[in-house]
């Protein structure tokens, strides 16, 4: 197992990701959870960078680490309940959830390790060596998203914008005081 820089970076990011995710889930204070969520979003952006997906990484930082975290914090602030000692308690059947999740996790990891895709990955390693060398994917991504001339996802993209519009209006309608 060679310890080149991308590998070290991957493991660092992985540890931060898993650790912050666990913190989000396990911490008793909801505000702490929210802050660790931001950490987790940032680490995920790092993982995208490692995967040569710069555009996704930037979007991740902008939307998740920026907007969603702020939204969550707002929500926490607005729903603060002073009486409860623990703002982020577990439900009664947490043990059942734990069993299911652990077994499902083992099942997924086992499946990943034994699937045909894993075999394919043997000859197609992620070429992390080209880190930062070529950022041509953004152009290509842009073409794929809204090129009117070549094959593209322009229609789903437009629909997605409508979805966002609906969500904005919906959020206002649901959230306003009446």
């Amino acid at each position: 197992m060679s310890l080149d820089i991308p590998t070290i970076a991957f493991y660092l990011i992985a540890i931060v990701l898993v650790g912050s995710a666990l913190a989000v889930v396990l911490l008793r204070n909801i505000v702490h959870s929210a802050l660790f969520l931001a950490v987790m979003f940032g680490a995920a952006a790092g993982a995208y960078v490692l995967l040569n997906a710069e555009f996704i990484a930037i979007v991740q930082v902008l939307i998740y680490a920026g907007a969603v975290t702020i939204l969550v914090l707002f929500a926490i602030m607005l729903t603060r309940n002073a009486q409860s000692q623990s703002s982020n308690p577990f439900a009664k059947q947490w043990w059942l959830a734990l069993i299911i999740c652990v077994l499902l996790g083992f099942g997924l990891v086992y499946a990943v390790g034994n699937s045909a895709m894993a075999v394919a990955s043997a000859f197609a390693p992620v070429h992390l060596a080209t880190l930062g060398a070529d950022s041509g994917t953004v152009t290509r991504l842009g073409q794929l998203l809204y090129s009117p001339f070549v094959y593209s996802y322009v229609l789903p993209f437009e629909i997605a914008s409508v979805v966002l519009l609906v969500a904005i209006i919906g959020a206002i309608v649901i959230g306003r005081e009446d």
Binding site: L96, I100, C101, G107
Partner: peptide, 20 residues
Amino acid sequence: TQGYGAAIFGGALIILLLLF
């Protein structure tokens, strides 16, 4: 709702185990 979620993923788990 969490019970429902647990049932969904428990079912998925059972299917996964059956496949294995």
